[in-house]
Design a protein around this nucleic acid. Sequence first.
DNA 1: TCGAAGTGTTGCATTTATGCACCACGCAAT
DNA 2: ATTGCGTGGTGCATAAATGCAACACTTCGA
Lengths: 296, 296
Amino acid sequence: MLNWDDLKFFLAVCRAGSVRSAAITLKVNHTTVSRRINSFELALGQRLFERTSQGYVKTKLADEIYNEASYLEERLNTVERKIIGRDDELSGDIRVTLPEILATELLMPGFAKFCHLYPEIDIEIIESVKELNLANREADVAFRIVKQPPDYLVGRKIAVLHRACYLSKKLAHKLSEPGWLEQQNWIGWTDKLRKPIGLIAKEYPRFSSKHKIANAQLQSIACKEGMGIAILPCFKADLDDELVRIPPYISEAKYDLWILSHPDMRKNNKIQSFVRFMTEYLANKNDLIEGREFTR
Amino acid sequence: MLNWDDLKFFLAVCRAGSVRSAAITLKVNHTTVSRRINSFELALGQRLFERTSQGYVKTKLADEIYNEASYLEERLNTVERKIIGRDDELSGDIRVTLPEILATELLMPGFAKFCHLYPEIDIEIIESVKELNLANREADVAFRIVKQPPDYLVGRKIAVLHRACYLSKKLAHKLSEPGWLEQQNWIGWTDKLRKPIGLIAKEYPRFSSKHKIANAQLQSIACKEGMGIAILPCFKADLDDELVRIPPYISEAKYDLWILSHPDMRKNNKIQSFVRFMTEYLANKNDLIEGREFTR
DNA sequence: TCGAAGTGTTGCATTTATGCACCACGCAAT
DNA sequence: ATTGCGTGGTGCATAAATGCAACACTTCGA
């Protein structure tokens, strides 16, 4: 069976007249060209070139095939330009994966702005904390909260997420009662993550741990309902009218936020426009993300 | 850059609706199909299929590409059938490599007969004792005098070549003079091949060695000119009116003659017809080859 | 005649593609 | 709820393709 991709090599040699010259055009080693021609001839069972010291000379059969191959090449190139050009035209879909917690107040307004700018682009949002496979286009762009992303992806760190401690606004009036706060409890996460460590453990009161809710969104809701003190990202809780920070009000830098894509998408104008836009959008949200937009 | 051969995988998956089913059609492993589709999508920067547990579902873009790809496939298949069918039609060229000594009285009549049977076939004869490369069609069929051919070629042993000792016919009348023969000399080959070994050394007189001619054709001519006794293949010398065998007239089985081709030519009707024809032709020449057509 | 520059080919090391075995998941039947 | 059968995907071993360095050959100019 013919390898259709060998047609590229055939065409290049027909035009260049030598395997070394064709190799430069094709950006491969010249021995590869020689071997690809050999295997193409074998598959066809016919000789396409005379090998001379001045290069490869086409046989009559090669002349016949060349015309057809040129036509097919033109057709294929048209298809390819149409599809890839579709990306350059800033239309079609972009698949974005992110943890749900980032979607609401933080990123969604940015997505909406981007879509307003480029009405031909559809954004599909995939909420997942799993590492979706960017290589087979399960997603094109990933927002990830990690210390260090995998080597095989490209991207940049666009923010450092801060967290602080929050209480339901319904209970805010109790903060002025002496000793009331110290009797509240954390809303726990899991058996292992019952109490905080780091700056928060050091600077905030030592509450007991109660409940187990391993989801920031649900922690937020439970907190609003008065179930305890929640440690929440600032970008989310500081914008929520039903939550208030508790004393000493400080935030802790805790998580790195990255925007990632597959290296092969570097040349994709659509994806890169999106990445650029969101990076800039988030740069303008830095005070919120780092907990500085908090007002008492 | 698109790998054009990936189009085959794309087409197969479009038609089969699943990678496993397409893999059966394409005679590859299903993971290969999956990976080839993934890399095709990556190269295009667009998704062509939704992955479901019931198989791959085409996107709208895939529907568009499918039509074009089907058309190109039909064009390519037409080209392929035309070329390979050309072989099946018993026309075009066959390149044959062989040592010169085999070409003249032994094989050439067979070639002529084959060409008469198939007037659309051209035979190119390449005289060479070198092992021409059958993989890149320097030659299609090789006649070789070897004990054991390389593993990567296919073929069969078609004869065992015999050799005997010959004298110029001009000197044949001297054979009846007592002691005359013993005073003649071998026509030597090289410094290392000055005297024969084996049956010939054992059964024939011990001549001294004179001259050095490392070519059977030239040995034959030198012998006719009276330069000495030559050891020559029977198929050649026994047909030559200017040469006579000397007593004790016996021949020695010495060389294996093989007909070889590249494994990928097994399905090539033209080549296989040629191989079959020549094998049968030589089977009918066996008495000559093994020295039994000698008449005193 | 010799050397330089072009050509193609060979052998070996490295990289990439493929196959195999296993796994995960969804769906239908029991 | 469990099992069986279909689907696609992952990790590792193996095979194939490619790149690199060296070589062989031809041609041209000094």
